[in-house]
């Protein structure tokens, strides 16, 4: 190792990675605008910041689990489950909105905690455990609804998912609040520090006298919490809940979180937002130039894989 090699402190390295990602955003905007001038419009930018809101919230959950050294494949189904449960209590049982929402979120968090127990106590690989949970939730959702769509949600509830507050879309405000809390937890709390260490080196964490089982449990519970928050907001945004609502969020969460984690090598909430912007811009851009949806899924997959490879290259010299 020579001195040149040592000329890199962590903050500098992180800054370089932010630049890389922002550069990518600029390149995407320039490319699509050259093909379709409407791409660079207030309308599309507004859509973008609405479209990233829910994916960023679930990706935050996935990021917490990844930072702790696992994967959560049940994020979408938990999201749908919380969405369904809250709606059922609101529409069918006629419970107050706040109570219904609280029940949905509590139940989703509980499912996350069960995931956490399977991984930390039973020692099941997180991918397998949460994949199993995905199927369990699928069954429960059919059983609860009989496959029927729930609609006629209360207007006051739907208002939470639509319109602006001080000129900013409400969903985006929810996202900003969650990202700010996430930044605080990751960078300023003991929990965040230990979580970061857990995924990087579980043995060193354990031998530092940290209860790694409880850390893992908390990570999955938090992922469940964020998924159910997303689920409730999704119901408010779309105003109808079907038996498979939210399922697509597993892949969104995975793509965004893996993208950001691969580039930065650790949990960076802002990185999550930029990654989401990139994915959404590409999705919107391809549909605006008339590409077929199958293309768009393929692009997402390619981006995720490319990010992993690029991350490997820039993080392991």
């Amino acid at each position: 190792m020579n001195d040149k090699n040592l000329k890199t402190n962590v903050a500098f390295e992180t800054a370089k990675r932010y630049l890389l990602m922002i550069g990518l955003v600029v390149v995407i905007i320039v490319l699509f605008t050259s093909m379709q001038p409407a791409f660079f419009s207030v309308m599309n930018l507004r859509n973008t910041i609405i479209d990233i809101a829910l994916p960023v919230i679930v990706a935050a959950g996935m990021m917490i689990v990844i930072a702790g050294g696992g994967l959560d494949m049940s994020i979408g189904p938990i999201c749908g489950f919380a969405s369904l449960l809250s709606s059922l209590f609101m529409v069918n049982a006629g419970l107050p909105i706040a109570v219904s929402v609280a029940i949905g979120i509590a139940a989703g968090t509980g499912i996350g905690a069960i995931n956490g127990l399977m991984v930390s106590r039973a020692g099941i690989d997180s991918f397998i455990a949460t994949l199993g949970m995905q199927f369990v939730l699928l069954g429960i959702r059919y059983w609860l609804t009989g496959g029927k769509t729930i609609s006629r949600l209360p207007q006051e509830f739907l208002a939470a998912g639509r319109g602006d507050l001080i000129g900013i879309p409400k969903l985006t405000i929810f996202m900003i609040v969650i990202v700010v809390i996430f930044i605080f937890v990751i960078d300023y709390t003991i929990f965040g520090r230990r979580l970061t260490s857990l995924g990087m080196n579980i043995e060193a964490t354990r031998l530092s006298g940290i209860n790694v089982k409880n850390m893992t449990l908390s990570a999955f519970a938090l992922s469940g919490l964020l998924s159910s928050v997303c689920g409730v907001l999704l119901a408010a945004k779309t105003s109808t809940v079907t038996v498979d609502s939210g399922d697509s969020y597993t892949l969104d969460a995975l793509t965004i979180a893996v993208f950001s984690y691969s580039i930065f090598g650790r949990a960076k909430p802002i990185g999550l937002v930029i990654a989401a912007v990139i994915i959404v811009l590409l999705t919107n851009g391809f549909s605006m130039i008339g590409a077929s949806p199958s293309w768009i899924n393929m692009i997402k997959g390619v981006i995720m894989l490319a990010a992993i490879i690029v991350g490997r290259i820039i993080n392991k010299k």
Binding site: N9, V10, T196, M200, N201, E203, A204, L207, R266
Partner: peptide, 10 residues
Amino acid sequence: QTQGLVQDFA
């Protein structure tokens, strides 16, 4: 490397 330090930490 594996038991003592988190290599990617500052």
